[in-house]
Design a binder for these strands. Structure first.
Lengths: 197, 197
DNA sequence: GGTGCAGTTCAAGCGGTCTTGAACTATATG
DNA sequence: CATATAGTTCAAGACCGCTTGAACTGCACC
């Protein structure tokens, strides 16, 4: 039940308690950033991956690792790893401004890619494995003989169900992609100027 | 990244190592039960909730808490809590056979209900909260004034995206229900005889 | 009442993941 | 080359949820 009832950040959004001093994040930014963090955690990612992406997206312009570190009150090493993950998944982009010497990171506006990543990536390795296990179980059960046929049937049905759920999942990916692609157009506002890599 | 690469149970299904002595579960049962456990964990439930359901479903007839405890090698207290959760969600049923004095637990064959539960339940409390947070952030940002309008726009877009994802999710629920309802007919085999509660 | 067994509750411990912080590498600059 | 700053790696530890096991309740039977 991970991320089911999360406690992080601030109590209710409007509550006056602000015990943590988060860099120089504006309150509204903190809330938005944490909201995204919660969603992302819910989807099986790390909370801070979502927070980093949200910060970069809200700011619109690329930030350095140091800035992220300060704004979100994370450790140097942590930021490094988070950024690497996000970059690997293609949800942020590492850019170097012409005059500047340090790397900066800008949000890829395509959040869908992230969601797609979860589902596809996990599904790939995961569902495959489940199916393998189930059919292996079936094989063993048949080999063992003397297994009541009704139980075998139930095993079959379980495998069938797994396949149907899998199909439903695929459908979800497809529809969600379609659904959100409309929004994507809105997102492409060219706010981030990136050049090389 | 919970449940991303899980290690539990047996290595590859066919591997000859069987270090744990799981009650008197047949090997094929162990594999199937664990497979379901993994799926269920993946979906944000407890692994053992899935294992218990799978065992009950495979056996077809109601088992006592003690039997479950032995078969799955769980603790008394754990079984009690797991059964309570599963019963609350309606995925198992507590029955008392006429002659018998102890409670027995039978699998509700409607797995879909479980899936639906995840999505609906979590979505309810969760997505609502996210939206609340985002609109709260918007309110604060507007109140604060002097927030660059482009940033406000990005915040808006984030909320929009959230709503679209939410819609996609709803769609998923609906379609998956439709998709699996066909299978459901197959599942209703009346294998479990239950009477009162 | 007393005994025994089924079932519940919950503090304490365990196990696994995430974060930290220090050591390390890489790169720019004088 | 020396120095400084940016970025990476990873062992140690913080953290958090799950499971355990013992104490407790409830119930049946003698």
């Amino acid at each position: 039940m991970k991320g089911y009832l999360w406690t992080g950040g601030h109590g209710s959004p409007g509550s006056p308690d602000a015990p943590v001093i988060e860099g120089r994040l504006a309150p509204w930014e903190a809330i938005a950033v944490d909201a995204v963090g919660n969603v992302i955690e819910f989807w099986g990612f790390k909370r801070n991956q979502g927070r980093v992406w949200a910060l970069l997206y809200l700011r619109g312009e690329p930030l350095t690792a140091g800035e992220i570190e300060r704004e979100l009150d994370l450790s140097k090493g942590g930021v490094s790893m988070l950024l690497r993950d996000l970059e690997r998944w293609g949800v942020i982009q590492r850019v170097r401004l012409p005059q500047d010497t340090v790397w900066r990171y800008g949000a890829e506006t395509d959040l869908v890619r992230m969601v797609r990543h979860v589902i596809e990536e996990r599904e790939a390795g995961f569902v495959a494995r489940i199916r393998a296990d189930l059919s292996e179980a079936r094989r063993l059960a048949e080999m063992a003989g003397e297994v009541p046929s009704e139980r075998l049937e139930r095993l079959e049905k379980m495998a069938t169900l797994a396949e149907h759920v899998e199909r439903a999942l695929r459908l979800f990916i497809k529809t969600s992609r379609l659904d959100v692609s409309g929004v994507l157009a809105v997102f492409r506002d060219g706010a981030s100027r990136r050049n090389e890599r």
